[in-house]
Amino acid sequence: MRTLVNLFDRFDKLDTNINKWLVAHSIGILRFSMGIVFVAFGILKYFNGISPIESLATRTTNVLTLGIFSGHGAMIFVATLECIIGFCFLSGMFLRVGVWLLAVQMIGAMSPLLFFPAELFPGPFHAPTLAAQYIIKDIILIAAGMVIASTWTGARIVAKPQSLRSTLGKRVPNVYKNMTVVH
Rank of each mutant, 00 (worst) to 15 (best):
R2L: 15
T3S: 14
L4G: 10
N6D: 14
L7P: 01
R10G: 10
F11A: 10
D15K: 08
D15Y: 13
T16N: 10
I18H: 03
K20T: 12
W21N: 07
V23G: 03
G28M: 07
G28D: 09
I29R: 07
S33P: 13
S33L: 15
S33H: 14
M34T: 10
M34R: 14
G35N: 13
I36A: 13
F41K: 08
G42S: 05
K45Y: 02
K45R: 06
Y46I: 03
Y46W: 03
F47W: 10
F47I: 08
N48Q: 14
N48V: 11
N48L: 09
N48W: 07
G49N: 03
S51N: 05
P52R: 04
I53R: 06
S55R: 13
L56P: 04
L56S: 02
A57F: 07
A57M: 11
R59A: 13
T60C: 04
T60W: 02
L64C: 01
L64V: 04
T65V: 02
L66M: 11
I68V: 15
I68R: 10
F69D: 09
A74C: 02
M75K: 00
I76R: 00
F77P: 00
T80D: 02
L81F: 00
E82L: 01
I84A: 07
I85G: 00
C88D: 03
L90Y: 10
S91F: 09
G92D: 03
F94R: 07
F94L: 12
R96S: 04
V97D: 05
G98L: 01
G98N: 01
G98D: 01
L101R: 00
L101C: 00
V104P: 02
V104A: 09
Q105G: 03
Q105L: 05
M106R: 05
I107C: 11
G108H: 01
G108S: 06
M110Y: 10
P112C: 08
L114F: 15
F115T: 03
E119L: 09
L120Q: 01
L120Y: 04
F121W: 07
P122A: 08
G123R: 08
A127C: 12
A127Y: 13
P128R: 00
A131D: 14
A132L: 00
Q133H: 05
K137C: 02
D138F: 06
D138S: 06
I140V: 14
L141V: 15
A143D: 05
M146E: 06
M146Y: 14
A149R: 04
S150N: 11
S150G: 09
S150Q: 09
S150D: 09
T153G: 12
A155K: 09
K160D: 11
K160E: 13
P161T: 06
R165P: 12
T167L: 15
L168D: 01
K170A: 13
R171N: 14
N174H: 10
K177V: 05
M179D: 07
T180Q: 07
T180K: 05
V182M: 05
V182R: 08
H183P: 01
